[in-house]
């Protein structure tokens, strides 16, 4: 067993684009954001130009509760690059508002992960020049 922590090595970091910048700016402010359709209310992630359900262009950024539950997970022992510390635990989280996000689980032992467990977002600054803050997830106690 080992305690899962945010990665601190030289990992590949996102380069926000014009569509995704509001998402990453939210992370810098400690808020997880997703897009919602003004016409049909459907939530969307990853950042999009049109509603995935009704094709409306009227998407607005809204704040998430940051809470959800683990939808699926894996525990990686062979790192994608040597800069990643193993084990790490990629998770898909089903958010309360009905959208999915890919992240890593942190703040618990690696064998504590299971589908259906409640989780909440926690932010971690990469410390790099671009001021990227990554959303991770931890178990709700």
């Amino acid at each position: 067993m080992s305690l899962l922590l945010p990665q601190s090595g030289d990992i590949p970091l996102p380069q926000p684009g014009p569509i995704s910048e509001p998402y990453w700016q939210g992370c810098r402010e400690g808020v997880l954001r997703f897009q919602r359709c003004l016409d049909c209310s459907a939530p969307t992630h990853t950042p999009a130009l049109m509603c995935a359900v009704c094709a409306s262009r009227s998407l607005v950024w809204v704040d998430s509760s940051g809470k959800g539950e683990i939808y699926s997970w894996t525990r990686v022992w062979r790192p994608v690059t040597p800069d990643f510390v193993t084990p790490y635990v990629p998770v898909i989280v089903a958010m309360e508002e009905g959208w999915f996000i890919l992240s890593n689980l942190v703040g618990c032992e690696d064998d504590a992960v299971a589908i259906g467990l409640g989780v909440e977002v926690v932010f971690h600054s990469s410390g790099g020049a671009d001021d990227i803050v990554l959303p991770y997830f931890q178990l709700v106690s």
């Binding site: 990992i11 970091l13 996102p14 926000p16 994608v80 990629p90 890919l102 990469s126």
Partner: peptide, 13 residues
């Protein structure tokens, strides 16, 4: 990709 790379994703995961 900006939404997967930082989380150590590759095909097996």
């Amino acid at each position: 990709n900006e939404f997967v790379a930082a989380y150590g994703m590759f095909t097996a995961a």
